[in-house]
Amino acid sequence: MFRDYILAPVSFSDFIPSWLWDSCSLCVALSRRDGCVIQSNRGFCDLGLTAGMESVRFVSPDFSRFVEVQPRQGDGVIYQGAIEFEGAKGHGTVSGKVYRQGDVFLVVAEWAQERLSLLQGEIDRLARRLDETTRKDALTGLANRKYLDDRTDEEILRWHRYHHPLSIVLIDLDDFGVINDDYGRQVADEVLQHIATLLGQSIRSLDLAARYGGGEFALLLPETNTMGGLIVGERLRLELESQIILPLVQPVTASFGIAALFAGERRDSLFRRAAQAVRQSKRKGKNCVTMTTGGQDASID
């Protein structure tokens, strides 16, 4: 890449194009024989280890021993490999090539290990955030519907393998539309967030709380049979009934539907039965828990 320029009787700074000084994909620096950096491009500065180029120097290999080294035929390289440098904020390593023009050395790093490490850390962080975004409901911080579906499918597969019980609790807030109409969307959102916090604090680490719809929530309860789901639902119903979420003047109540997985049952059928139990709770006057077992429903209010 630099062979034709290196053989010309001009300084490096004369032939290096302006775009290369602005490049972030390559680390480029000019150095004296003692390793001190004279000039560098953005890619080198972006390593984040430097406060100013005057405080940066290459420490390995020793550039002074390259003064008598003849450039490699074909590309003008006098050294290729790992190059260590240190600056005011720390040290780093790049893997690249060294060229020489008199007592001035040109370092071109095609792969910056330190920079890639920093970039990989940032990529990992963004990936975790993206993963959380795709799994969580933005308003409540609970799992979203898609992640609930995925986890339910996983638990159903586990049920078929180990035959441990699995239950679902659907929760539909009573008259939630009235809260939205009378108090506005902001208060309605605060109510949802409050209930989401309550649900998150009421479950085990192996359970999953999710926002199922507008004013609907769901609890996925592994290792829990229908009676266990009924107990969880009734406990939550009583807790909601006993609280007043300001600025509301009445407690927020909910209708609950409980269903436990049958042999050979799929996710859609499980949730359909739980939703039928919720509708049965509504028909019975709301603020109650209905569980479905086989073709029969049983309620607690």
Score class of each variant (00 low, 15 high):
I245S: 06
C288I: 02
F85N: 04
E122M: 12
R204D: 03
V107P: 08
A82V: 14
A51L: 14
L246K: 14
G285F: 02
R129E: 12
L198K: 06
V249G: 14
N144P: 03
G214N: 08
Q73K: 13
G141V: 04
P17H: 05
Q280G: 08
F2T: 04
N41G: 05
K284M: 13
A254M: 02
L230M: 06
I83G: 05
D150S: 08
V187P: 01
R125G: 06
E216R: 04
A275Y: 03
G214P: 05
H194Y: 10
G177S: 15
L20R: 11
K136G: 10
R266F: 11
E190T: 05
I179H: 06
T134A: 15
S95I: 15
L240Y: 00
L170Y: 00
R267K: 08
A218W: 01
P9L: 07
R65N: 09
T224D: 01
V278S: 00
T133R: 13
E234H: 06
D153H: 05
W111I: 15
R151P: 06
S64T: 07
Q280K: 12
A127P: 04
W111T: 15
Y162A: 07
I203P: 01
T292S: 15
Y162Q: 08
T133V: 15
V28S: 04
G177A: 13
N287A: 02
G229A: 02
T226C: 08
R267G: 03
H194T: 14
V108L: 07
S167M: 01
A210L: 04
E114F: 14
S167W: 00
R32I: 04
V56R: 04
L192A: 03
L219Y: 00
E122K: 12
G214C: 06
S18P: 09
Q193G: 07
D34L: 10
S18I: 12
E154W: 08
L130Q: 12
V56L: 07
P247L: 07
D46K: 14
L157Q: 12
S11C: 14
G214Q: 05
K282M: 05
L198A: 08
E223C: 09
D46Y: 12
D62A: 07
S95G: 15
V187W: 02
D34T: 10
E110T: 12
R65A: 10
L192N: 04
I171P: 00
L148Y: 03
V94M: 10
Q80V: 11
S31G: 09
T290Q: 01
Y147D: 10
L157Y: 10
C36R: 13
I244E: 06
Q250N: 14
Q80T: 10
A196S: 04
